[in-house]
Amino acid sequence: MSAVANPATVAECLRVGAGFSQGDRNWIAEQFAPLDARLAGFHADSTELEVSVKDREARGQKVTLECWIAGRQKIVTTSSEEDLHAALNDCRDDLRRKLNDAKTRQEPRHNKHVREMGQPVPDQPAELDVDALRADAETA
C-alpha cells in the first residue's frame, strides 16, 4: 500500500467548536496526538476533526468529537465524564476504536491478492426462468 502524500494529523485537522477557545486547541491536540497514527492513512485535505463541549465544567457537561473523512460516513463520539481531560480521552479512544472498526470492515482481511488487486466485479445476474418459477409456485 502506498503512503498518503499529505497525511492527516490532529494538529492539522482539528477545529475547536462551542465551549472551547483557540487557546485550548494546543493542549487538546496534544491529548489527541495518539490519533495521528490512525489518521495517517487519510489525506489531510479531506479529513476534519471538531471537538466541542456543552456546559463546560458543569455537572452534566458533554464533550463531542466529530470526524469527517471524504467518502466515509461521519463518525461522532461523545462523553459525559465530569473531568474534562477524562472526557476528551474517552472521545479520543472511542474515535480510534471506530476508525479501526471502519477500516476492518472496508478491507479484505485474509486475502492478500484481493487486497492488492481489488475485489472482482460480479457477473451480471442470470436471467430468471419465469416458467420454472410459475411451475414451482403451482406445485407449492
Rank of each mutant, 00 (worst) to 15 (best):
residue 97 R to S: 14
residue 43 H to Y: 01
residue 13 C to V: 14
residue 5 A to R: 11
residue 134 R to C: 11
residue 64 T to Y: 06
residue 115 R to W: 09
residue 32 F to E: 04
residue 99 L to N: 05
residue 97 R to A: 04
residue 85 H to F: 01
residue 63 V to W: 01
residue 62 K to Q: 10
residue 117 M to Q: 15
residue 106 Q to Y: 14
residue 14 L to R: 03
residue 50 E to N: 11
residue 39 L to N: 04
residue 9 T to K: 04
residue 114 V to T: 12
residue 45 D to F: 04
residue 15 R to N: 12
residue 17 G to V: 00
residue 124 Q to H: 09
residue 139 T to Q: 13
residue 129 D to Y: 07
residue 50 E to V: 05
residue 50 E to H: 00
residue 117 M to S: 15
residue 16 V to S: 05
residue 119 Q to M: 10
residue 21 S to F: 02
residue 100 N to V: 15
residue 8 A to D: 04
residue 101 D to R: 14
residue 20 F to N: 07
residue 14 L to V: 00
residue 7 P to H: 13
residue 82 E to W: 09
residue 13 C to K: 04
residue 94 D to C: 06
residue 88 L to G: 01
residue 14 L to Y: 06
residue 110 H to G: 13
residue 43 H to A: 15
residue 37 A to H: 03
residue 30 E to M: 07
residue 18 A to C: 01
residue 45 D to V: 06
residue 136 D to V: 05
residue 111 N to Q: 15
residue 40 A to V: 06
residue 4 V to N: 03
residue 41 G to C: 13
residue 35 L to K: 01
residue 22 Q to M: 11
residue 70 A to H: 12
residue 70 A to C: 05
residue 128 L to G: 12
residue 86 A to M: 03
residue 120 P to T: 05
residue 5 A to P: 08
residue 47 T to I: 13
residue 84 L to E: 08
residue 39 L to W: 00
residue 99 L to V: 09
residue 140 A to V: 11
residue 81 E to N: 08
residue 118 G to E: 05
residue 34 P to C: 03
residue 61 Q to M: 10
residue 134 R to K: 13
residue 134 R to Q: 10
residue 73 Q to T: 01
residue 65 L to F: 08
residue 115 R to V: 15
residue 121 V to L: 15
residue 137 A to M: 08
residue 115 R to T: 09
residue 58 A to F: 02
residue 119 Q to H: 14
residue 114 V to C: 04
residue 56 R to Q: 05
residue 113 H to N: 10
residue 131 D to Q: 10
residue 89 N to R: 08
residue 38 R to C: 13
residue 44 A to M: 05
residue 138 E to D: 10
residue 48 E to P: 00
residue 84 L to Y: 03
residue 114 V to A: 14
residue 58 A to N: 08
residue 26 N to G: 08
residue 101 D to E: 13
residue 50 E to Q: 14
residue 12 E to G: 14
residue 5 A to W: 00
residue 83 D to S: 10
residue 57 E to W: 07
residue 79 S to F: 02
residue 6 N to K: 04
residue 46 S to H: 10
residue 54 K to D: 13
residue 129 D to S: 12
residue 31 Q to Y: 07
residue 47 T to F: 03
residue 121 V to F: 03
residue 120 P to C: 10
residue 67 C to K: 03
residue 118 G to F: 07
residue 43 H to E: 15
residue 125 P to M: 08
residue 45 D to I: 02
residue 70 A to P: 00
residue 78 T to S: 05
residue 75 I to V: 12
residue 30 E to K: 11
residue 8 A to I: 09
residue 56 R to P: 00
residue 67 C to Q: 01
residue 73 Q to V: 08
residue 74 K to C: 08
residue 76 V to L: 09
residue 90 D to C: 09
residue 106 Q to S: 15
residue 7 P to T: 07
residue 140 A to P: 00
residue 136 D to N: 12
residue 127 E to S: 14
residue 56 R to E: 02
residue 95 L to Q: 06
residue 88 L to W: 01
